[in-house]
Amino acid sequence: MSSTSVNDAKHGFSRPEMYKQNLAGTVESYDRHVFLCYKNHKTWHPRVEASKDDPLPKCIATAFKARKNDIVVKTKITVCEAREEDDFFDGDVLIFPDMIKYRGLKESNVDSFFEDVMVGCKSWGGGVQDAMTGSYIFVCAHGKRDVRCGVCGPILIDKLNEEIQLKGLKNKIFVMACSHIGGHKYAGNLITFSPRPDGKIMGHW
């Protein structure tokens, strides 16, 4: 048996735990998802938000914990890969369902970002704001956190990008690797954000 087959049987889509449980209702609802673009899934430590080698995610996690009682909008924060070829750079912050991208987040201005955006729910005075269009798919590929995500995530990303290319949807649908979003045993896990016909942005796990 090849190593690929062994990986799939143990950690991939053929593992025994797959397709055994109804997943409807297993995710607690929330109102805002903030993604920090930072490096890529191959470099993330098991807990990227706590690693001394990753000061920006750690700084954001510390601020989130400190200001949690001040943040009235129920919020999740996740790291996603930076992809310069698609105009997503280290320190860019993507906010859903607002469809806003802020550029230039650094350790030195995390406090002002939290004060303005996370707590105050207003535009950030310290960064450049861009509107985002299209649909976004975030796939957990955080293999150092859980091997199942590291096996299944990249496969999903490749297949999704293949279909997007075949259907001529490049620059309309963006697929990005993200860090742990919960539910390792359900891997591959993904979140989608896309506009409804009325323009409202909907998120789905």
Rank of each mutant, 00 (worst) to 15 (best):
I71A: 06
N40Q: 11
T43I: 10
L36Q: 08
K74Q: 08
R15Y: 04
K10R: 12
E17N: 12
S29H: 04
D54A: 10
V6C: 07
A61K: 07
V73P: 04
Y19M: 06
K10P: 05
D8I: 03
K65T: 10
N22G: 11
R32N: 05
K20N: 13
H45S: 13
V48N: 05
P46G: 02
L23C: 15
D53M: 02
R47P: 00
S5C: 06
Y30G: 09
K74N: 08
V27L: 07
I71V: 06
Y19W: 07
C59F: 01
C37A: 15
A61Y: 01
K68R: 15
A61G: 06
F64L: 07
P16H: 01
L56N: 11
N40Y: 11
R47G: 01
T75S: 10
L36M: 04
T75K: 05
Y19L: 03
A24C: 04
V27A: 09
I77N: 08
Y38A: 05
V6R: 11
Y30W: 12
T26N: 07
P57I: 08
K74F: 06
K58G: 13
N69D: 15
E28N: 12
A63E: 08
A66E: 13
V6Q: 13
D53V: 01
C37T: 15
H11R: 13
P46Y: 03
Y19R: 01
T62Y: 00
Y38F: 11
K39D: 13
K42I: 14
L56P: 09
R15H: 13
T43R: 11
R32S: 04
F35E: 07
I71F: 03
T26G: 03
Q21V: 13
T43M: 12
K76I: 03
K42Y: 14
V72G: 00
V72L: 07
D70H: 03
V6T: 14
P16Q: 02
D31P: 06
G25C: 02
N40M: 03
G12Y: 09
L23G: 13
P57D: 08
S14Y: 15
K65G: 08
C59I: 02
E49F: 10
S14N: 15
C37E: 15
V27S: 12
K20T: 15
P46S: 05
K58E: 12
S14G: 14
K52W: 04
K39W: 06
V27R: 15
C37K: 15
I77W: 05
K42A: 14
I71R: 01
D8Q: 08
T4N: 11
V34L: 09
F35M: 08
A63V: 06
D53F: 03
R67Q: 01
V73D: 03
A63C: 06
N22S: 15
K58R: 14
D53A: 07
T26Y: 02
Y30D: 10
F13M: 14
P16F: 01
A61M: 05
V48E: 09
K68I: 14
